[in-house]
């Protein structure tokens, strides 16, 4: 699959990454190179092989339903550029 400048522009916007217009074409080339490289994996026959999610056999750990965190708004807000009365404050978002 080939990526063009328009796709790069869209993906960059969705990821909120600022990419100047004159970089888009070069980035598309780079990404195409990476994808082509990864596509070599398609040469391996994986029919009947379960997708591997971890290198070591492991199951999803589960925790009990108990309150063990929270109750410290000051800590949560410590890095916020702006906060007041316990709230994060951000530029106006509509809807």
């Amino acid at each position: 699959m080939a990526i063009d400048a328009a796709t790069v522009r869209k993906v960059a916007h969705l990821a909120r990454v600022a990419e100047p217009e004159d970089r888009l074409e070069a980035l598309a080339q780079e990404l195409n190179g990476i994808l082509a490289w990864i596509e070599q994996l398609n040469e391996v026959d994986v029919q009947g092989v379960e997708p591997m999610t971890t290198a070591v056999e492991a199951t999803q750990p589960l925790r009990d339903d108990a309150v063990t965190a929270g109750g410290d708004p000051a800590r949560v807000l410590a890095n916020a550029p702006k906060s007041a009365d316990g709230f994060f404050i951000v530029p106006k978002v509509v809807e």
Binding site: A66, V67, G70, G71, G86, F87
Partner: peptide, 22 residues
């Protein structure tokens, strides 16, 4: 009593950001 992926409390009426884990 607690959230899906964290140990912060679930409930109604707490002060802002009081039921928030990292």
């Amino acid at each position: 009593k607690s959230k899906l992926f964290s140990g912060a409390a679930v409930g109604f009426g707490a002060g802002p950001n009081e039921q928030v884990s990292l």
